[in-house]
Write a protein that binds this DNA or RNA. Structure first.
Lengths: 239, 239
DNA sequence: CGCGGTGTTGAGACCTGTCAAGACGTGTGG
DNA sequence: CCACACGTCTTGACAGGTCTCAACACCGCG
């Protein structure tokens, strides 16, 4: 199941046999968690990071007053809080969206990797920077794109990210978020998410029901979103 | 002038004499650039990163249609595009706000550092993750905070970041952005920035004229912004 | 003295939010 | 098997924050 993670790495750079061994050796144990659980709390002292093997996670920032902003969604293959390795605590919670399987990676092992494998270290450094690039694109969405384009953009991004790790089937994929959770990602209210979703459906671009998202018109969806995938750094090259 | 950069590092972890030497050795040359110049273009192949020694930079993402989102502001001491070292190209432009002095750091030297100095490498890894934490806080602002709080929050953040590197004087600091540029940071229009600024002034929280921002009521400004500095990771600890 | 960039103001439109109620669906217990 | 409960989704009416467009004021600079 760590295969998905390796796929994600190999999409961006070559991984040697020795490095692959090191990656496989990172996971100390595999645990499961049910849906709707806080699994890492903001500020908590960290000794390990979480490699998501299966299911969906979200990174959530709370505001006094009960509002929340989901700053990133994570799917199988993502290192959800690798940044915690150097930050030592997080500025947000990590919560489960669905039931998940997680590989627990002790910081001790990552640290050992940084002492021994500089190239692999640079790849993981790259991965946290890719994460930041996704944040920046989200900032553009939140700052400048109207609701419809914002939602369309998210769907495009998720399609590509899931496709890399083999989690799309034909023109659709599992999409377990409720409309309220979607609203927390998009910086909208649940009511407006509902109406925007209907609009996307009425335009014949996507369909979403019972936890499954179908992209009907990929090209039209992309242009509604003004989507340009270059911020996902899909090219493979020496890092 | 690289002292400001060292200050910023030392705020977060101890730097040994050997590491300090390495940091000083990163800069190959110092160049100057006038205001309002694009100095790194999105997508451009990178062989060096830019350490800002003096002045202000912005990282800008363009949308087809001419809209722009500034995803981060940089002040003296910031490594503006350290993430470019592993990304190899940027997903945004880097532009000058003011006249700047910049230390040019060849990637070759950073790479050499990653092979030889794992602890310093982790510190720089930390710095790019700090950058991402600032992005996340910006996402909360853009997604959830109304204009007034959003602007107040930015002013609080800048005050702290400038204070770390010794660029505040009393209750004020140089703030060279035009209202249009401020709008590009905040995801607002210039007109609304103007009105919001008047509101903050009318409330007696800040004053801004001729490129200088004065914070009149720090506590009131913080609470108007719901500002909590913990996302800036100001504590010093082993990384 | 005129010009271009910047800042300011007003009126009206529009997108998104708020509040409230009801529909739907699925799991639970009687 | 039905009744109910709870979360989720949907809908309507209305409010409000922010945008758009347009005009004008201000100011430093050539």
């Amino acid at each position: 199941m760590i295969e998905r993670h390796l796929k994600k790495l190999r999409q961006r750079d070559a991984i040697s046999a020795e490095e692959e061994q090191a990656v496989r050796g990172l996971v100390a144990q595999v645990i499961e968690q049910p849906a709707d659980r806080v699994i890492v709390r903001e500020g908590q002292e960290l000794r390990e990071s979480l490699l998501l093997l299966d299911g969906w996670l979200a990174r959530v920032k709370d505001l006094p007053g009960g509002q929340r902003q989901i700053t990133e969604l994570h799917v199988a293959g993502d290192f959800a809080d690798l940044h915690g390795f150097v930050l030592k605590r997080l500025d947000h919670d990590v919560v489960t969206i669905t039931r998940v399987r997680i590989g627990v990676v002790p910081h001790e092992r990552i640290r050992e990797m940084t002492e021994r494998l500089p190239h692999l270290t640079r790849i993981y450094w790259f991965m946290t920077n890719l994460d930041a690039a996704v944040h920046r694109e989200a900032a553009v969405s939140l700052g400048r794109r109207p609701a419809l384009a914002r939602m369309a953009h998210l769907f495009c991004e998720l399609w590509i990210r899931l496709d890399i790790v083999g989690l799309t089937q034909g023109d659709s994929f599992d999409f377990p978020l409720t409309q309220s959770e979607l609203a927390e990602v998009l910086g909208l209210t649940a009511v407006h998410v509902n109406r925007t979703l209907q609009e996307l459906r009425r335009m014949g671009l996507v369909e979403l029901h019972s936890g499954r998202l179908r992209i009907i018109e990929w090209e039209a969806l992309k242009s509604a979103a003004l989507f340009d995938e270059s911020y996902l750094f899909l090219e493979r090259r020496q890092r």
